[in-house]
């Protein structure tokens, strides 16, 4: 494949394996202990390759990695996802199509590795907790500060912890992908999103109290 050619996207692919995919029960049975388990695993790996290729094709940051690295990521993600699916087979409850359930593992593996690979080339210090983003280097550098912006800035300094401020600045101002920040901080996506969520709640509460944001309607607060 030419280096400049975009990775294959799903619309260019034939159905998995060129044949109609087995129904859910068939997949679970075949991958579990069926006589053609090896063939079923090979077909599953093909599905994971398809999902990985599709995910990588949607990511603009993947383009700068080059074809060879993209292929490495696709195959590694497909291998990891195949293992993940097989190890979780007993937890598949049939609430979705088997293929939809399985695809999500390959998509996640691929997306995380692309984000991390793309950012490994960047000289960014993400370890200085509490250090605000430089106004001259972020994507918002030349944006005009708004009244709300000034109020949010004040709130960030007064109601957020150093860790909350660092995570919020990195994710929402500097544009650092959450998986990259998690890797640099020795954390994970789940924990960082919780930190970000709590920071947003603190900021909203402060800005609401100060009259910059409207109060939440009671019915909106009901899950």
């Amino acid at each position: 494949m030419d280096e400049t050619e975009a990775p294959t996207i799903v619309s260019r692919l034939p159905p998995a394996g060129g044949i109609a995919p087995p129904v859910t029960d068939d997949w679970v049975a075949r991958l579990g202990s069926g006589r053609d388990r090896d063939q079923a695993i090979a077909e599953l790996h093909g599905l994971m390759l398809r999902a990985a290729r599709h995910q990588i094709a949607t990511m603009s940051e993947a383009h700068e990695l080059g074809w060879t690295r993209r292929e490495e990521i696709v195959h590694a993600a497909a291998d990891e996802a195949t293992s993940a699916v097989l190890s979780r087979l007993s937890r598949f409850e049939g609430r979705s199509r088997f293929t939809t359930w399985a695809y999500k593992f390959a998509i996640l593996q691929t997306a995380v590795e692309v984000r991390r690979s793309a950012w490994r080339r960047r000289e960014t210090d993400l370890t200085a907790l509490g250090e605000p983003a430089s106004p001259t280097t972020g994507p918002e550098a030349h944006a005009e500060a708004s009244d709300l912006g000034r109020a949010v800035d004040e709130a960030m300094n007064s109601v957020l912890t150093d860790h909350q401020r660092h995570v919020a600045v990195a994710l929402l101002i500097d544009g650092v992908p959450i998986d990259v920040l998690a890797e640099r901080l020795g954390s994970n996506r789940n924990a960082l999103y919780k930190t970000l969520h709590d920071a947003r709640v603190r900021l909203r509460n402060d800005l609401t109290t100060r009259g910059y944001l409207g109060a939440r309607a009671p019915e909106e607060a009901t899950p």
Binding site: G130, P132, A133, P135, E140, A141, A143, E144, A145, S146, L148, G149, R150, V152, D153, M156, N157, R165, V169, L172, I173
Partner: peptide, 10 residues
Amino acid sequence: PRSRRLSSRA
């Protein structure tokens, strides 16, 4: 803490 210049979108 230092001051930032936050846009409306940020």
